[in-house]
């Protein structure tokens, strides 16, 4: 009997490899970097070729909303980091609060994005629109890249929200604890990557003058 219990207790530990799990996550983040890296490469080439037209097109973007979204996303990165420390310090309540805050900031980011894209659409600037196609080639490229890159980034935000919601449930159910939190750490890594990509998207699209 006691031998049996011992075997079960052992089994729960044997099949966990946190370092391996994190390596897998970093390898995945590597592929994400290359995915966005390729897009930044296209951006760089076209900005070099059409620098004046990029400047004209960028004037259409709302710098205030971009700045606000940057601050919101940076803050959500803080709260997810705080949540992980809270779990490590066995403070479940503080972890839950920070995860909920992260989800709130993520949602806020998407709402602002919705209004930002919405006002572009109202002005007739959307992929394939007549208004856009009548502009110069560089401006068409700028808005094409803007929609694809911020759109793909937005998709990452939505996936990140789903991941963090799942983590929140696991924390509430005590499935994530101070000695077993690699799922939370990996989801946090994903969230920080989304933040990292925005750190570059923001100046390259919103801050050209």
């Amino acid at each position: 009997m006691s031998h049996n219990e011992h075997a079960i207790a052992n089994e729960q530990h044997v099949h966990r490899d946190d370092t391996g799990a994190k390596m897998g996550m970093w390898l995945f983040l590597f592929t994400e970097l290359l995915l966005f890296g390729g897009m930044f490469l296209i951006y760089a080439v076209y900005r070099f070729q059409f620098s004046d037209q990029f400047r004209v097109a960028a004037l259409e973007l709302n710098t205030s909303l971009g700045t606000l979204n940057t601050i919101i996303l940076l803050t959500s990165s803080l709260t997810v980091a705080l949540a992980i420390t809270a779990i490590q310090k066995k403070n479940k309540f503080f972890a839950i609060i920070n995860l909920v805050l992260t989800l709130f900031f993520a949602l806020l980011f998407m709402v602002i994005k919705y209004f930002e894209w919405g006002s572009k659409f109202e002005h007739g600037i959307y992929p394939g629109s007549e208004e856009l196609l009548n502009k110069q080639n560089g401006e068409v490229l700028f808005f094409g890249l803007y929609y694809v890159m911020t759109g793909l980034h937005g998709l990452h935000i939505i996936i990140g929200m789903a991941l963090l919601f799942w983590i929140l449930i696991l924390v509430m159910k005590d499935k994530i604890t101070h000695d077993n939190f690699v799922k939370m750490e990996n989801s946090g890594l994903y969230w920080h990557l989304v933040d990292l990509i925005w750190i570059f998207l923001f100046p390259l699209f919103y801050l050209i003058h």
Partner: peptide, 25 residues
């Protein structure tokens, strides 16, 4: 980015292998 990677993503305090991963990418 380096602030986010080193502190938020724990690269500074994590095992060296993750620095290698990041360096390669």
């Amino acid at each position: 980015s380096s602030l986010v990677i080193n502190i938020f993503m724990h690269i500074k305090s994590d095992e060296p292998i993750f620095k290698v991963f990041l360096g390669v990418s």
